[in-house]
């Protein structure tokens, strides 16, 4: 009896909303391509130490083997210090992915709280918080990051702070607008009428219903942050050499563009792949979460 119940339960559970979103996402080939690329990149980043040793291959200079073209030994060739470009790129993915994920997590967490408070309480609170967000939003994320890094000094932590601050207002806006559309629905009133506290209403009723647009926005913004990290490093404001950062590699390779184009081709390709995979996935998620396409 109990086994039958359990079976019934899983059958019913399997048709939950998450499952139906996954079904729709699976139908979208481009989104799945993006997802696989991203997963592959995450796996490579996680196992980068096994594929190529950080100290000996990605950092240590090896002058005898400098400026080699791609070969079986050095898949992507070597740079002007004899370092393996492939090893540097896979170790670079650690920096790009982890930094963009952490920056997004910080921005979503802080942005969600600010947006939720502004949207739920409304009135003056909303006005003050959102006008402050508007000030931040008026400066493009790129420019914002440059000025923050320039002001605080060049380091990974400062870059993280800069990216998080640049994206907080974006998430605050997204979350506030979805909360505004949810908070006047009757199920919120139902929760109020049985005595639920404001905190419970925000976390149990509003956030779960507002999470869709946040995930989409975070995925798309992650692609943009990878670009910003690379751009700042290219300008010498991001990750310091000799750390194997994609933007830094582009900067270093630019002097040899004519003779050894692979020095910029591969890091550039890595950036492109990362951004494209995130954008494809983000677009796919947006379609999958769109209530109008529900069947």
């Amino acid at each position: 009896m109990s086994r039958r119940n359990a079976k019934e339960e899983t059958q019913i559970k399997s048709r939950s909303q998450m499952a139906s979103i996954w079904m729709r996402l699976k139908k979208n080939k481009m989104a799945m391509a993006g997802l696989f690329m991203l997963l592959a990149m995450i796996l490579i980043a996680v196992f980068a130490g096994i594929i190529a040793d950080y100290d000996t291959e990605a950092i240590q200079q090896n002058m005898p083997e400098r400026m080699q073209t791609p070969s079986a030994k050095h898949w992507f060739g070597t740079d002007n210090f004899g370092r393996d470009v492939f090893a540097r790129i896979i170790h670079g993915s650690r920096i790009s992915l982890s930094m963009s994920i952490i920056a997004m997590a910080i921005a979503v967490a802080i942005g969600a709280v600010i947006g939720a408070i502004a949207g739920y309480y409304g009135g003056k609170t909303d006005n003050i918080l959102m006008r402050f967000m508007d000030i931040l939003l008026a400066i493009p994320p790129m420019l914002m990051s440059i000025s923050i890094v320039a002001a605080l000094g060049q380091s990974m932590v400062n870059l993280l702070i800069a990216l998080a601050i640049a994206y907080i207002p974006v998430f605050a806006r997204v979350i506030r607008s979805s909360i505004l559309s949810i908070k006047d629905q009757e199920f919120i009133e139902a929760a109020k009428s049985c005595g639920s506290s404001n905190g419970r209403i925000i976390f149990k009723h509003i956030i779960p219903n507002a999470i869709g647009p946040i995930i989409v926005q975070a995925t798309l913004a992650m692609g943009a942050t990878i670009l910003i990290i690379a751009s700042l490093s290219f300008m010498g404001l991001g990750v310091k050499p000799p750390s194997p950062e994609w933007g830094t590699m582009l900067y270093e390779g630019r002097d040899f563009l004519k003779g050894a184009p692979y020095l910029v081709l591969f890091p550039g390709g890595a950036i492109t792949l990362a951004v494209i995979s995130l954008n494809l996935l983000g677009d796919g998620l947006r379609d999958a979460l769109d209530p109008r396409l529900r069947n």
Binding site: Q185, E186, F187, E189, C194, P208, N209
Partner: peptide
């Protein structure tokens, strides 16, 4: 509030979809 409750007009909007 425990002793006074409310039944809503729209059974589509009054239940949390999640």
């Amino acid at each position: 509030r425990r002793k006074m409750q409310l039944i809503f007009q729209d059974p589509y909007a009054s239940l949390n979809p999640r």
